[in-house]
Structure formats: structure tokens, C-alpha cells
Write a protein that binds this DNA or RNA. Structure first.
Lengths: 352, 352
DNA sequence: GCGACGATTGATATCGATATCATTTCTCCT
DNA sequence: AGGAGAAATGATATCGATATCAATCGTCGC
């Protein structure tokens, strides 16, 4: 009987689409009342709201974003991104744009390097008239940026920061838990000497991951000698250095957990170069499940984040904030996404 | 005084946009005439068309895609993509969505593997009601897919195929010229023993690149022994195999030109593993300028394609085709994008 | 010089929602 | 009970374009 939901999402071949007016007629109210219910207008009687919601449900009504946009203008959401390479950018874009299409908001993508003052990019977005901005780390932890946005009345949504500011909407993962999950995986395989490659210390995710690693090791009663935790900066190149350092140790670790996949890939390349077999002689673990993790061989065991879904959520929240008059604290949320341990070919029990 | 009344009505600082009606008034015609000029309606007097175009130009009019969509419905364009990893997917998405936002068309992104019959994904898009589809290789060379689309009246736009079917709109690069450019670069550095790693032979780009390589070598009077051209499949893993093969030769090449960056990255990893210094002892060249090229170290010398712009062009053409009644051959085009040789750190003159 | 017919143009309705203002209904206070 | 003010709802105009149909203008054949 009922048509599947997806059919109404894509207004393909002129589906006899249900309009606001159909709902109004069905519920026995005016179309404005329906519009108000949809937009969470404050002064609606419970009776009317209930009737309308019921009709919306029964008719399978979906608001037409295009029509709405003719009056309200399209909600504009800015998206800053820092690293065009080696990140989950394509998954991010996929999710972000899918949602943007669904809800009919316009995404303004703005690249920004850490160096030439990210404030520049933010100002550009503000001037373009965005109502909200999705901020990747480390920008979302930067009080200067947040102040700038607040002054302009633009709502921030922080993306994958490990320490969201309380008043700022955020979409993230539990980096501590993720690192713990991976560490546990290695411990369960039988590893004892597990080394850790740090990430860029200015990213809160890097420090949380290290904390998760250390806490789990401690909990298992395993020591983490200072020499087994080396600096990294999330880049492939920093991973090369870190790997050479760790694999040159007299007492070599049997597993290396790198704070992200790029560095893990570098570790893999160095191990390969030194004739160390992966995973028989050395297990390597990454974090993020970026494309490189399944590109290289052996494929990396890593922690997967549902980046596309998270991006979609971030855009949805941002669009909501962009539409409102801000100052509406009830719409500020903190969303935590689920993590998955992806066991691939780069980890195994340590040799004899 | 300054601000007109309506400005305070609209939220934000939306500029007074020039509408169709403004143009009509300025040109002294009705708005329908303006609309017709914009949409290339056949029966418009030259005088009227000229007046309107002049007014459009003077007022800086830009059609409002949102308003248009309320009547026409959004033009839907399908985009198939095959490899979620390691390709230029994010640049592609970026360009595609930017343009889609500009012209107000909806993109339906559909993943497809080579294995579970790509026809499935195509059918899905057709059923969703797209008017045109952007096809990456090798789908755009597949007559079965093209026939399927033709039967459904959906226009194909092939993307980066080296051999576009004559009747099919295409956006591509000159793979032959690109390979020739890179080969010339290596020859000019002084290399004589240049090896080549093939790509997936089912992709027309792979064969064109090989032709470009061979032609340039021949032109320079350099021999290409059979042992110096090895199989590859565009994957990192196939690159590992190819590299081991080439670097194990008694007479080792001083430069290896891989048909894409993933394989070049693999060559780099193997060289690293064998203690062969790049670029002093071995030059490595890639093709595509994917993220991995600038991620690994040393960064790859490669051929850059303006993927984002090409994607934007493809979407624009597809949207145009989706809007028309097809059968309008004058809108079928073949666009060739410019290539750039990116000289990075992986190539140098051969050691004494 | 008349009608036919195609080329050209315009008036008006419409798409599906929101903005605005008017109106009705409810509270609560004096 | 009267009435002020807030809550709740509806009528109508509007956003910027296209669809539709009717009206005008030529020009050509007879």
C-alpha cells in the first residue's frame, strides 16, 4: 500500500507531490497553520499541531525546498576545509552535499590553510552571507575564530573536534574510545610492546587519542616507555621520521599505532624498506579509515568514522541554525557518531 | 533614508537582485520575451533579442535558478563514480557541486563497482528520473550502457575517456599529449632507460598514455625493450608488483613512468624498500595529480588535470542536455581540458 | 484586398511555500 | 462585565521565474 519513503525524496517523474495545501485541507486548517507547525512557530495550539502532524504523516508530506527558497532565500552554509589531500574529504563532501540537496541549502566550500590566517577564509564566508559555518579542527577550537563568528552573528558547527566548546553545536566521535578500542585490539592479539605515533598536538583529537591509548595500556598493566611514543604531525612525511625512529630502536615494538592513516601508511612504507614484514613481524594500526588505508598493501587496520553521515548531520544542524535567529539554545546539540574497528591485513599476533 | 524598505524585510543583507521583470522594463518588452530570449526560444525577432541581451548585460542580470525550478522542476543529473578511493574524487565532487549549485540542478551521485554490473546503477539513476548522466571510464566506453541510456532517452556525458564516441558529449584530456609531455620531461633530464607501467587495459586512457609514451620515445630515437613495459591495473598493489619486476632487472631503468599516481606511489615505496634513493638513483613519474602525489615523500612529478573545472563543465553540459529535448545535436560537444606538468621531487637527472 | 497561417509578443495563471497584516479567541485583571 | 493584551488562526500578497493561451503583425496566395 504505502509507497516507499525514498520515492518522495526524489521528486522524479512528477510524482503527484503532496503540498502544504493538501495537508491543510486534510487537517482542516489553513495552510499558514501547517507552515507554522513545520517551522516550529511558538504559538500553535497543541490540538492544531497534533492534527497537522497527523495529516503530514498520513499523506507523507515532504516540504518542497525549492518553493520555500523562493521566499526565504536559500539558507547558506559555509564549510571550511583545511587539507585538500589525504583526508576523508570526498566522503565528507559526499555526505554534506547529499544532505544539502535534500534540505535545499547552499554550501559554500572555502579552502583554508593554517598558515595564511584562517580568519581570512572565515571573513570571506561571512561576507558571502552564510548563516552558519561548519568548522573542522583545529579551527573549531580557536577562540579567535569563534569570537569572529559570534560578532557576525554566524553560528559555528564544529566538526570532529575532541573538545567541543559547550555552547557550540558539534558533530564528533569519541576519540578516546576509538583509540582505546584499537589499543585493546592490539593487546588482545598478544602485543605488549606497542608504540604510538602522536598527531599534531594543536588538534584536540590527537591528544585525546593519545590519552585513550595510554589509559588502555595502563589498564592492561602494560608499560609505555617514553621511547615508544614519538612525535608526529598527521602528515605522511612526519610518519616517515617517526617510523625510522621507532624501527631503529634496539628493543623494537611489535606493533605501532599511528594517530592517523597517513602516518600509518608511512610506517608501512618504512617497514617495507627495512625488510620488516607486515603484519608478521610488525603490526601497524591507523585511525580515520581514509582512502589510503585501503589503497596501500597490506591494507590498514584502522578506526572507521562514518564521515559522510557525520557531514550530513553537521550540514543539517548548520542549516537549522542558519535559519533561526540564533540565541535559540535549544537547537545547540552535540552529536557523537559511532566508530567501527576495521580489522584488515596490517595487524596480526606478534611472531613467536 | 538610504535603504529601500524591502531590505529590512529580508533577513540578512541580500542585495537587490535584478529580476526578469527589471530587464523587461529596461528593455521595454514583456517579461515573457525576456524569458524566451534566455531560453533560446526560436521565434524571437532579432531586434527584440538584441534589446534584451543589451539590457541583461547592462543590468548584470543573472537568472534565479530557484525561482525557475519552481516551474520547471529541478534538472536532475546523475553522476556515476566507480572508485571511492585514491582518485580525484574530492576534486571532482567539488567542481561538480559548485556548478550544480550555480545553475541549480540536482546531482544524484551513484556509486558503482565494475563487478556487480554497472547497469544496475544506471537503471537506478534512470528510474530516479535524471535527464543526463556523467559517466566515468570505463563505463563511458561501454556500448551496452550507452544503448541503455539511449533507450531511456537519457543523455550521456562521458568524462575523461580517451576515445569519446562521436555522438556523445565528452569532457576529457589529451592522454596521448600528457604522456608525451611527461616522457619528454624525462628525456630532457637525460634519461635513456625509461620504463613504463601500464594501466588497466580496459580503460582507453591507459592505452592512449602508453601510445604517447612510445611515440615520444620513438621520436627521440630511444629504444623501449619489452622488459621495460610491464602490466599494471591502476591500483597501488599492481604497482608494487610492477615495481618489483622493473627494479629487479639486471639493467635497471633510471626512470619509471607509471600510468597513474597510485602505481607511482607504489613504485616509490618499493624503491624505498630496496634502498634505492629517489630521485638520485631513480626518477619516478606519475599521472593524474591525485592527492597521494603530494602526500607521499618525495612528492611525485606528475601530470595535473584540472579535474574540478572539468567536472563543472561536465555537469553544465549534462544539465543543458537534461533540459533539452535531446535530438538537438548542436549541443553535443567535445571539451578538451588543459594539462600541466607538475615537476616535484621525484624526478631528476640520472646519476653520473 | 481578403482570409490563412505562421511569426512574434503579451496578459494572466501558476508553482509551493512564506511574509504580512487582519481577525478571532482566550485570559486575566480591575 | 468590560476590556486590554496575548495567543492562535486565516486571507491575501508575494517570491521570480515559466506555461498557456490569446492577441497582434506580416506576408503570401488567390
Amino acid at each position: 500500500m504505502g509507497r516507499p519513503a525514498w520515492e518522495s525524496l526524489l521528486s522524479g517523474k512528477r510524482r503527484p507531490s503532496v503540498t502544504l495545501h493538501d495537508v491543510a485541507k486534510h487537517a482542516g486548517v489553513s495552510s499558514m497553520t501547517v507552515s507554522r507547525v513545520i517551522n516550529d512557530y511558538a504559538f500553535i495550539s497543541e490540538a492544531a499541531r497534533a492534527k497537522v502532524l497527523k495529516s503530514i504523516d498520513e499523506l507523507g508530506y515532504r516540504p518542497n525546498a525549492v518553493a520555500r527558497a523562493t521566499r526565504t532565500g536559500v539558507a547558506q552554509v559555509g564549510v571550511l576545509y583545511s587539507n585538500p589531500n589525504s583526508s576523508n574529504l570526498s566522503a565528507f563532501l559526499m555526505g554534506a552535499f547529499r544532505k544539502a540537496g535534500e534540505i535545499g541549502c547552499q554550501l559554500l566550500i572555502e579552502p583554508t590553510a593554517a598558515h595564511p590566517a584562517p580568519a581570512r577564509a572565515v571573513v570571506k564566508l561571512i561576507e558571502a552571507g552564510v548563516g552558519a559555518v561548519v568548522l573542522p579542527p583545529p579551527l573549531c577550537d580557536d577562540p579567535k575564530i569563534l569570537k569572529l563568528l559570534a560578532a557576525a552573528g554566524v553560528e559555528p558547527v564544529s566538526f570532529t573536534t575532541a573538545r567541543p566548546s559547550p555552547g557550540v553545536t558539534s558533530v564528533a566521535i569519541d576519540d578516546f574510545a576509538g583509540a582505546a578500542m584499537m589499543t585493546r585490539h592490539l593487546i588482545e592479539l598478544g602485543h605488549v610492546d606497542i608504540a604510538f605515533v602522536r598527531g599534531d598536538p594543536t588538534h584536540s583529537t590527537a591528544t585525546r587519542r593519545e590519552e585513550g591509548f595510554r589509559a588502555t595500556m595502563a589498564q592492561a598493566g602494560l608499560a609505555v616507555p617514553d621511547a615508544h611514543v614519538v612525535e608526529g604531525a598527521f602528515t605522511y612525511r612526519s610518519g616517515l621520521t617517526a617510523a625510522r625512529q621507532l624501527l631503529g630502536l634496539r628493543r623494537r615494538p611489535s606493533a605501532i599505532f599511528a594517530c592517523n592513516d597517513d602516518m600509518a601508511a608511512a610506517v608501512s612504507a618504512v617497514a617495507h624498506g627495512l625488510g620488516i614484514a607486515v603484519p608478521t613481524e610488525l603490526s601497524i594500526a591507523g585511525f580515520d579509515d581514509t582512502p589510503v588505508a585501503s589503497t596501500i598493501w597490506p591494507q590498514l587496520t584502522t578506526i572507521h568514522q562514518p564521515i559522510a553521515d557525520m557531514a550530513a548531520t553537521a550540514v543539517e544542524l548548520a542549516a537549522g541554525l542558519a535559519r533561526r535567529d540564533a540565541d535559540d539554545d535549544r537547537s545547540r546539540k552535540h552529536v557523537l557518531a559511532d566508530l567501527t574497528l576495521m580489522v584488515r591485513q596490517s595487524t596480526a599476533s606478534p611472531a613467536g
